[in-house]
Each structure stands twice: as C-alpha cells, then as structure tokens.
C-alpha cells in the first residue's frame, strides 16, 4: 500500500513572524518547521502501512524556497521518501493554486491513499484536501477521527456536527485527519540519521506541467486590500489566589446574573 501524506512547512507558530507591509502576506523568510497538524497524518500513514504489512509512505510538499527541514522531521518519523515542489513562482499561492500543485505531484506518485491534515496551522483555509480530491477525480472523506484499510476499501469515522459518521470509501481516496487521532512518534536518533539519506525529489512547477500563471500571485484569484490592527481588548482585574479566589469568581458570576 502506497500512502502519500501532504505536509506543509510553516513558520514556528510560537514565532510566526509578521505580515510584509509591501505584499501584505506572511513573511516566510523565517525558518520553517513541520506543521504539527501534519504529524498526525504522517503517524496515521505509518500505522496503516504497518497494519497492512507492506507498503511505503511518501511525502508531498511545496515551498517557494528550498526549505527541507520540516520534511526531514517527517522522514525521521519514518516516512520513506518525499517530493518537494520548490519554486519561486509558488509565492503567494491561494488554496486552489496550492491544490493544483499538490494534485499534480500526487498523481505522479500513484498512491492508494492520500492523507492530509484538515487545515494548516498558518493559512487554515481548510479546503485543500477536498480540492486535491476534486482535481484528481477521487472521493474524499474529511475530518477523520479513525481510519482502517481493508483491501481496497477505507473505513473512516468522520467528525460531524452531531457526532460521527461511519463512512466506507473505495481507494484511491483522499482523507483528512483531525489532530489528536493518533500519537505522533518522536523521531529516534536512528530515524534522524537515516532521514538525511532518504530521497527528496525536488521539482519545479514546469516539471509538473503547470503554467506559472496558474500558481503564486499570478494564479491567486484573490487579493488583500487592507490590513488593520484589531481593537484591543482591555485586561481586567488580576487576583492572586490565597485560597479564596473561587469566592471572587462566584461574585463575578453573580454580578453577571448567570448563576
């Protein structure tokens, strides 16, 4: 079973940088790391291949520069190989431009199953997995809480507003996984050493037959017109607990007439 996992390298959420006032987009000249949301997809893929008894896990990712450190993290977890579409023309891509590139790279890998996070932790548009599926003509199941694969069928427990749906889906298919569904393993020292020698195939968009005007700024069907500071919320009273802070909370709730 060949599983492709879409992963994104993002600025560290603890230090996300700033918006570039010129281009009004996130500055990405900071160091990029593996989006933590993607570690669940990688772990899920490793577990599914393990359960199947055979197969491989291949990563697909894109960046406007040559950054690979986030990919190495996922390779160190145990993924076998990666395709990195690294092209300056990708800067400024919207979700659809991103999906066009990922879909083209995924198609070449001919996977049985494509996994992704439900949304990235920086752009969080939440539409890329289903866009990729539509571009590839595949079924998709988003917001998976559990996945099991039996032969050429995936059974997915999908989060819904009311609870969960049990969905049966023929492979190949695209499935997006929510955070917390599995416990991502920490890369071992051996894994980190091995990751350095795992194949990372670097491509340009031309290698995928994608025209530059379909991605990046040129291909994005949207533009930012304004960036403004949001109104600050004023801080209130801060009390150090001396064993009776709960009484202060009760009094506060009383004032609000909610108890």
């Amino acid at each position: 079973m060949k599983v492709v996992v879409c992963v994104k390298q993002i600025p560290d959420p603890a230090d996300p940088g700033a918006l570039d006032p010129e281009t009004k987009t996130l500055r990405r000249n900071v160091k990029l790391i593996l989006d933590e949301s993607d570690s669940y997809g990688v772990e899920m893929a490793l577990q599914l291949v393990d359960a199947a008894g055979e197969g491989s896990v291949h990563l697909v990712s894109m960046v406007p520069n040559d950054e690979v450190s986030g990919l190495r993290t996922a390779l160190a977890m145990g993924a076998d190989s990666a395709t990195l579409i690294s092209d300056e023309a990708l800067a400024g891509s919207d979700a659809l431009g991103t999906s066009r590139v990922l879909a083209a790279a995924i198609e070449r890998a001919e996977p049985d199953l494509v996994l992704a996070a439900t949304e990235s932790s920086d752009g969080y548009t939440g539409v890329v997995p289903a866009q990729v599926a539509e571009l590839l003509g595949l079924p998709s199941v988003t917001f998976a809480k559990e996945i099991a694969v039996e032969g050429s069928t995936a059974t997915v427990r999908r989060q819904t507003e009311a609870g969960a749906d049990l969905v049966e889906c023929p492979l190949p298919a695209v499935v997006s996984v929510t955070a917390g569904v599995v416990e991502p393993r920490y890369p071992s020292f051996r894994g980190i050493m091995q990751a350095k020698n795992k194949p990372v195939d670097q491509l340009k968009i031309a290698d995928l037959g994608i025209a530059a005007e379909r991605v990046g700024w040129a291909g994005a069907g949207q533009e930012i017109t304004d960036v403004a500071e949001a109104p600050e919320r004023a801080a209130g009273e801060v009390v150090v607990d001396e064993g009776d802070a709960h009484e202060r909370i009760v009094a506060f709730l009383d004032e609000l007439k909610v108890i």
Binding site: A133, E134, G137, L138, P139, S140, V141, V156, T160, A162, G163, A164, D165, L166, V167, E168, C169, P170, A173
Partner: peptide, 12 residues
C-alpha cells in the same frame, strides 16, 4: 469515481 464514499452509519 468522486462519489465513492458512502455513509454506512451515523452516531450522535
């Protein structure tokens, strides 16, 4: 092929 996924059961 896009329509292959089918809900078999719903849980509240």
């Amino acid at each position: 092929t896009t329509g292959g996924a089918v809900v078999r059961d719903r849980f509240t």
